[in-house]
Nucleic acid binder design. Structure first.
Lengths: 382, 382
DNA sequence: CTGAAAGCGCTTACAG
DNA sequence: CTGAAAGCGCTTACAG
């Protein structure tokens, strides 16, 4: 699908040309201009705070706009100015703690800066991802893009490059040429969690992470699994594939994986869950199996989900809101400063995946923190 | 603030008039028209699926659009057509389970219908609410508004009436004249929860709900408190003010209120929390106080939060996603059917709060369901 | 510092 | 069923 037709509409209604303009019509820029005794160009400049307007004129324009309850028409402004004042924010699932928290922080920042937030929730639907990333859907619709934990294939990267919009990624493995990235060090976080269990004396440590074929958080899965394995190896242990479960980043996924794990025979003495939601699912499954936490099995996750404190879940805390705020700032700063040209109908030479990496700065890594609660303790045998 | 200036921008860049138009410029409607050998009017009609285009012409236009990778410019289309293809969705806090779940369902429905979703997260900031509701901010920016659990004061209602946009509310107490409302019966839900505790034999039943002065979910608080009191009275009990706590609809709020409740002396044998998040906070506080659930204190909430199963929390389940989907459908149906005229610059006679109630249909009430888990049991004395 | 005028890229009566 | 032309309401070189 190339052309994106607007929603089928009615036959339409439009103010008749030359019709009376009493208080039956909404204020337009020329109404303000007339009242202020200036041209529309001056109104436009004054309202946007451009420096090339005298103080006295600006005052008159603002007063007139106030009096007439004038608000600029976004459509007209966008068409004429080439800027949309809108940012697309793409998340895998807004209902997951991390993404909801990020979006909340981003929303506040964007709206304070006067930008609108267009929300795209992939919801696990691959077709949505394709529509968002690969078609001209975002074209002319937003000034910038924020991708949160969105895995990108080569074809996606090409599509993004063709879009030629500024953007930023959060918690992303795939680097988009020219886009900054804000994230935590997933490998280190996993290492810390696993080491915490090792330090307590655990040796049979299971891992539950995402399905590697699941596109939703590909690199997060991989990185956290790697940290787990590195910590084990560093302790002289060989990762046991039968203790390494692939699942979903959800409570249900954690529950199911843990149940399956327990069915395999001798249970582990500890579980490192790749996120707190998985850990919560593990907690249920363990309880249902009659195993106590932490006496029989220790559990640790990653995130510091709002509920982790309630559950007494040990975890690796990551600053979700801060990642969102920082990313929003890094994204908007160049736009506001005017260092980025507004979209103007050019089609650039596609840069392609990794073609232009030289201009891409290294990811901004935010710190994580081990939070020890009641779900981790030394194994019983000790 | 009346005029909403766009974000300060750069000096601008624009394609030079008469400049070469090789593959250096993005496809416009006249490129498609030329390739298809028709006028731009016909391209516009064909792409939007209007019936007044012959099959053969439509085919040629679609092929040309496909070949040129044409995508309509939203700004131009909106300015010319008077429709934005965008819906504003206002929620108190996207991070809370109910709102995240609603937004996820709404997002899917809107995007499938070809609409964009502009997200407004109030985040407890009153100034944001005012900016969203009372200024011309939404004016000309969206085709419709969805307010989720947004309390409305008379001034807000006046502002919404002046906006003259179609809208819908979810879980709202304030009725907006002319707008449908989708919700559950909060009074009945609270009654059922309380009756469940009464049926188990409880008599000292505490309630933790929202702060009545908190604007964020005003009627939800009130309704659930009313259901609680009604159930008590129906059982011949007089509501005890010392067992009725005012708090926030959050885990922290529930925690704090419960702690305070326990400090007052003899603890209740059961707690009805106005939402699951409050209930989760209560769970922690009880545990910290050395009280067991349900042996010492029973706890029930409202929502059926994703984690309630994990925690074994009894609750009144409400269909959050379904409320979102249904509301989105009710909102879009008239727009898509064309029964609603596109925005066209008229300023209607403000209808004011409750002025036009006759045209407002009664709320659509979705059913709730008592889910008994492990957090409720008969009191020990029994 | 300000204004006249062109232009942004579409959609819509209107006429055929 | 289709096209020519006006118009949507702004912003921006350009000229002063």
């Amino acid at each position: 699908m190339t052309a994106v037709p607007p929603p089928p509409g009615s036959t339409g209604w439009r103010r008749e040309v030359g019709a009376e303009r009493g208080n039956d019509s909404v204020t337009r820029i020329d109404d303000v201009a007339r009242l202020a005794g200036v041209s529309t160009a001056t109104v436009s400049r004054a309202l946007r705070g451009l420096p090339t307007v005298s103080a006295a004129t600006r005052r008159r324009v603002l007063a007139a706009a106030e009096q007439l309850q004038y608000a600029v028409s976004p459509s007209a402004s966008r068409l004429a100015g080439g800027r949309t004042g809108t940012v697309a924010v793409v998340v895998p699932r807004i209902t997951r703690w991390f993404f909801g928290t990020v979006v909340e922080a981003v929303e506040e920042f964007l709206h304070q800066a006067g930008y609108d937030l267009l929300l795209y929730n992939l919801g696990g639907r691959e077709q949505v991802r394709q529509r968002v990333l690969r078609t001209a859907n975002l074209h002319k619709r937003v000034d910038a893009i924020m991708l949160v934990a969105t895995p990108l294939r080569p074809a996606d990267l090409t599509a993004l490059a063709e879009l030629d919009l500024p953007g930023i990624t959060i918690s992303s493995g795939s680097t988009v040429p020219g886009w900054p990235c804000v994230r935590i060090d997933d490998v280190a976080a996993a290492r810390t969690a696993t080491r915490h269990l090792l330090d307590l004396g655990h040796r049979r440590i299971a891992h539950i992470s995402g399905d590697p074929t699941d596109e939703l958080a590909f690199t997060t899965h991989t990185d956290r699994r790697r940290g787990y394995q590195e910590a084990l190896r560093h302790a002289g242990l060989r990762p046991d594939p039968s203790l390494d479960m692939e699942s979903q980043f959800t409570i249900a996924g954690g529950n199911q994986a843990t149940t399956e794990l327990l069915a395999r025979g001798e249970p582990p003495t500890a579980i490192f869950a790749a996120c707190d939601e998985i850990a919560m699912g593990a907690l249920t499954a363990l309880r249902d199996a009659g195993l106590r936490v932490p006496q029989d099995v220790s559990v640790i996750g990653v995130d510091d989900h709002d509920l982790s404190g309630v559950l007494g879940l040990s975890t690796i805390a990551q600053p979700a809101a801060e990642q969102g705020r920082l990313a929003a700032r890094l994204l908007l700063d160049p736009l506001v400063a005017g260092t980025v040209e507004p979209y103007a109908g050019r089609v650039p030479t596609p840069r392609g995946a990794g073609a232009d990496d030289a201009t891409t700065s290294p990811p901004v890594i935010l710190p994580t923190r081990l939070v020890v609660r009641e779900s981790t303790a030394p194994p019983r045998a000790h």
